[in-house]
Simulated assay, not measured.
Amino acid sequence: MPDMGHIVASAFKVALVFLSEKQCLTFLPLHCTPLPPKRMLKSNVSAMGYVNNNHFIQLYTRPGFPMPSIALNWQRYRETYAIGWETPFRSRIEQFGRIIGSDVATVESFDIVE
């Protein structure tokens, strides 16, 4: 998912939340202007989960559910006009950070140290 999340988010103009046992990320569109905040919070968030180590499922979420950190590559490669995608989700991302365990990665890639 770290390789495809930005493509899916950009193609469908959604915030894409990816949840699994070992990695959780939020992907935002790289190349589109954000929608008005009220509209974005209602309909432009999709969630998917990776289950049984072999397939993805669509997750149905409640309004205002906690969201994982935004994937770092969004900061690196987004257009300047896409910055506003992050704003409506900040409090939800902070909430997720307070409840997630330390054994779950919230970045796309990381170094494995012996």
Rank of each mutant, 00 (worst) to 15 (best):
Y50W: 15
K13P: 02
L28T: 01
Q95N: 10
F110V: 07
Y81W: 14
S10V: 05
F18T: 00
Y77S: 11
L30T: 05
L72W: 04
S43G: 15
Y81V: 10
S91D: 14
V104L: 09
M4R: 11
E86R: 00
F27H: 02
P29W: 05
H55C: 13
Q95K: 14
S91A: 14
K22S: 13
A15Y: 01
D111W: 04
P2V: 00
F12D: 07
S43E: 14
T80M: 07
S91V: 06
M1A: 15
P63Q: 10
I99T: 15
L28K: 09
R78L: 08
I70F: 01
I70M: 07
G49Q: 04
P63I: 04
P2M: 01
V107M: 08
W85C: 05
A47C: 14
D111F: 05
E79Q: 15
C24E: 13
L19D: 00
R98L: 14
Q23A: 02
M67V: 13
H55L: 12
S109W: 10
P66W: 10
M1S: 15
A105E: 08
F96C: 02
T80H: 08
A47H: 04
E21N: 11
I7K: 09
P37F: 08
Q95S: 14
P37D: 11
L41T: 06
P34C: 11
W85D: 00
I99K: 13
F27S: 01
G5R: 01
V45T: 03
F96G: 02
K38R: 12
T61P: 02
Y50T: 01
R98I: 05
N52W: 06
P36S: 13
I83Y: 09
L28W: 02
P63T: 06
T61L: 12
Y81L: 11
E94I: 10
V104K: 10
W85I: 04
R76Q: 11
H55F: 15
R76W: 01
F56W: 10
V113E: 13
E79C: 14
I57W: 05
P2S: 10
R90N: 12
C24F: 05
P68E: 05
A71K: 00
A47F: 10
Q58E: 12
A82F: 03
I70P: 01
I100E: 11
Q75I: 00
T106A: 03
N54G: 12
T80P: 11
L30G: 07
I99P: 03
I100Q: 12
Y60W: 07
P88Y: 07
G49D: 03
F89V: 07
I83N: 14
D3K: 12
I99D: 10
M40H: 07
D3Y: 01
Y60E: 12
P29I: 08
P2F: 00
G49Y: 05
I112P: 02
F65A: 14
M40Q: 14
S43D: 15
Q75W: 03
P68M: 06
T33Q: 14
E21L: 08
G101M: 08
S20Y: 04
I83R: 13
F89R: 02
F18C: 06
L30P: 09
A9I: 01
F12A: 13
W74F: 09
P34G: 10
A47Y: 08
F18Q: 02
Q58G: 04
S46Y: 06
M1W: 01
